[in-house]
Design a protein around this nucleic acid. Structure first.
Length: 258
DNA sequence: ATGGTAGTCTCACTA
């Protein structure tokens, strides 16, 4: 079984790339972020034709998350229960009915725009509320994978130039502290647990030609429960997709279980 | 380098 997360930066603009990737990479479960489409206009048919069930939480123009699964999807929640006043489509949770049931979350953490701005405060608040809910989920003692675009590079190894990046958006101490709190609270950073010393990015800036320059950040993560971590055989960032024509600025991150 | 690129019911906003 293979579970992937991918910030596609518009599922409609990216549809040919997404369909090709689904065919070639054939993940069993996919967590999408930044679908940028209302639920009625989601490209259900094209994706269903490849054998996927679909659950979505979308909105116009911005944000939007979804879950694709070759197994039945049950118990869908389309908002973060601990943040009811949040109206942006950044959270979807469901149970995947495979041999071993797996609870999955697709989350799109706010970017924060500029350190000190209202959007930065919103990012920190979202992370606090997310952590609160994740702690509640952890008490179920089940296979749980919270995947998505956290918009946080957790450690120095996760950015190209940590000195230059210090205190800037996605590498600010207040963001990194919250990511650490999640790990200290019992979650496992699936990629980092498997590869303690490997520099691996999942996002490269369009504007500064990050891909061409080999400069990116590791912003997309799977935080998993211990029960899930025990079953993980490997974790890979499928960065080849970033070099294709009309790419997303993020690449898929996937883990395999037996 | 307060630039640059990409996406969206756009000429402004988010990332």
């Amino acid at each position: 079984m293979k579970i992937s997360t991918w910030n596609v930066n518009s599922v409609r603009a990216r549809l040919p790339l997404v369909l090709n990737w689904l065919r070639e990479s054939s993940p069993d479960v996919v967590l999408l972020q930044e679908t940028k489409v209302v639920d009625e206009l989601f490209p259900y048919e094209e994706i269903e034709d490849l054998g996927y069930n679909i659950a979505v939480s979308g909105q116009k123009t911005y944000n939007g998350v979804a879950i694709l699964s070759k197994f039945p999807i049950e118990d869908v929640i389309t908002a973060l229960p601990t943040f009811p006043e949040n109206t942006e489509a950044r959270y979807i949770e469901a149970v995947i009915c495979s041999d071993i049931p797996v609870r999955v979350v697709s989350v799109y953490v706010p970017n924060g725009m500029e350190v000190g701005s209202d959007k930065f405060a919103y990012k920190l608040e979202f992370l606090d509320r997310l952590h609160e809910h994740m702690q509640n989920l952890l008490e179920y003692d089940e296979c749980l994978a919270v995947g998505g675009d956290y918009n946080i590079a957790p450690e120095e190894i996760d950015v190209h130039d940590p000195v230059r990046m210090e205190g800037r958006i996605c590498f600010h101490p207040e963001e990194r502290k919250r990511f650490r709190t999640m790990v200290n609270g019992g979650f496992i950073d699936a990629f980092r647990a498997k590869y303690p010393d490997t520099k691996q990015y999942t996002w490269w800036d369009y504007r500064t030609k990050g891909w061409e320059n080999g400069r990116g950040m590791r912003l997309d993560h799977f935080l998993v429960s211990p029960q899930m971590a025990d079953l993980i055989k490997d974790v890979v960032a499928e960065e080849d997709t970033r070099g294709l024509p009309k790419p997303s600025d993020h690449c898929p991150l996937s883990f395999m279980v037996l």
